[in-house]
Design a protein around this nucleic acid. Structure first.
Lengths: 111, 111
DNA sequence: TTCCATATACTAGAATGTAGAACATAAGGT
DNA sequence: ACCTTATGTTCTACATTCTAGTATATGGAA
């Protein structure tokens, strides 16, 4: 039966989901904003990049430099995309939780 | 509006769910077993207790000593129960995730 | 060429995750 | 009584993740 699965930390999961959701628009600053909205709290940009780097190192996502000449000024963006392994990790993480939460009624916020 | 919410780490969430699920049968060794089954990997007993202690310190759960004379031998159990604040934290943690995951199709393992 | 806005990189300390050995307690056999 | 076995918990230490804060990079506009 397979190697031990690799589970994501809470923030890693959140960031990975944000990248997924933003699709072709996923770059640091925007990701930060998305995460802040979803978590309803201030998230430092450093926190986001540290996590993105770690996720990339693990092969869960990939990044590349955006256009060298942005439209309105400012540094070039670094875009991110979730890789297959990232989706897998997301699934595994969710699986463990689901097996435990299934059938439990604790007043879930059903969005 | 309100103070910044408190989110649970991955393992904290798993352990809290296990305690909830085990109900009146939630004590260290059993919790460990439940968590191991759900995550499909070996979980050291130390990892479980360290997390239980931290969760108790934060007020997410409560513990007390079980019977002084267990049926078959061995040390008395220490039972755990999730408190209201724990349920709240579970909800908040879930909420943030839901807001991001909602509508995203990445092949969820629907158990 | 200075200032401002947008972005990313780096660093450090706190919190969480994780393992393993030590300790505690009781039942049962001999 | 004493030792072995079965349960269960406590303690300690270290690795990884979380998080904030500060520094650096780059281009447009005044």
């Amino acid at each position: 039966m397979s190697e031990p699965k690799d589970y994501l930390g809470h923030f890693e999961e959140i960031v990975l989901l944000a990248v997924m959701r933003l699709a072709e628009n996923a770059y640091g600053a925007k990701i930060r904003q998305t995460v802040a909205e979803a978590t309803e709290r201030d998230v430092s940009i450093g926190a986001v990049y540290a996590t993105l780097d770690r996720l990339e190192r693990k092969g869960y996502l990939k990044s590349w430099q955006g256009e060298a000449t942005p439209e309105r000024g400012g540094r070039a963006k670094r875009y991110f995309r979730v890789e297959g392994a990232g989706v897998q990790a997301l699934n595994d993480t969710n699986g463990a939780r689901n097996r435990l939460a299934h059938g439990l009624d604790f007043g879930l916020d059903v969005a």
